[in-house]
Simulated assay, not measured.
Amino acid sequence: MDLCLGQVFSKDKTFRPRKRFEPGNQRFELYKKAQASLKSGLDLRSVVQLPQGENINDWIAVHVVDFFNRINLIYGTVSEFCTERSCPVMSGGQRYEYRWKDNNLYKKPTKLPALKYMSLLMNWIETLINNEDIFPTRVGVPFPKNFQQVCKKILSRLFRVFVHVYIHHFDSICSMGAEAHVNTCYKHYYYFITEFSLIEHSELQPLKAMTERICT
């Protein structure tokens, strides 16, 4: 899927620089294994399953970083159409509105333009995945006890990017001929989060109808 996304989307429009896995460590080998499975044409439901003998936190870490890269690329490509004028609120249609809170600059849920929300979101995720105390890269260093909780929060917020892109910018995706690639990325993401129960089903409601159509 990397090759397909690279062909469809302009990589200079990536919203944030890609996070890369360092060659030579276990996570890099897991990433290569996951990519090989994706490109082999296997059913995505089987691709997301934990390989025998592998650590579940390593597997989740690899996918969180990979989804960050992919979703970052998708949003970066449509971000020129996502302006304060076109998207004054981070939302998914009229029924769903997302407010930003980070307990730092924004201590209360705050209504923001979608572009500003996305920028804060990507910065927040990038800071987390670069934090060695949360996403350790050295062999033998354990994951923190709250690792999966952190990943659930990251994946939940990344879902909001899909919601906004699908509901507000899908015409742009289609005009680029990228519909199939975005759908594949979403299906991969959806099968992964449901395989490991990483998001509450109630949070998936904004894309429920579409999900039932393309992920069955």
Rank of each mutant, 00 (worst) to 15 (best):
T77V: 14
V78H: 00
V78E: 01
E80C: 05
F81L: 07
F81Q: 08
F81A: 03
C82M: 10
T83N: 13
T83F: 14
E84K: 06
R85M: 04
S86P: 01
S86M: 11
S86G: 05
P88I: 03
P88V: 01
M90Y: 10
M90P: 01
M90V: 00
M90L: 04
M90E: 11
G93R: 00
Q94C: 00
R95C: 09
Y96Q: 04
E97L: 00
E97R: 06
Y98G: 04
Y98Q: 13
Y98W: 14
W100E: 06
W100I: 04
K101W: 01
K101Y: 06
D102Y: 06
N103E: 15
N103W: 13
N104F: 10
N104C: 13
L105H: 04
Y106G: 07
K107H: 00
K107N: 04
K108R: 06
K108S: 06
T110G: 02
K111E: 11
L112D: 05
L112S: 08
L112W: 03
P113V: 03
A114R: 07
L115P: 02
K116W: 01
K116Y: 07
Y117D: 05
Y117K: 02
M118Q: 13
M118T: 00
M118W: 07
S119L: 09
L120K: 00
M122G: 03
M122Q: 07
N123Q: 11
N123G: 10
N123D: 13
N123M: 11
W124M: 09
W124S: 12
W124D: 09
W124N: 08
I125G: 03
E126W: 11
L128S: 11
L128V: 15
L128C: 05
I129Q: 12
I129G: 08
N130V: 10
N131F: 08
N131G: 08
N131S: 14
E132Y: 05
D133L: 15
D133P: 00
D133A: 15
D133C: 13
I134Q: 10
I134E: 09
F135K: 12
F135A: 12
P136M: 09
T137N: 09
R138A: 13
V139R: 14
V139D: 15
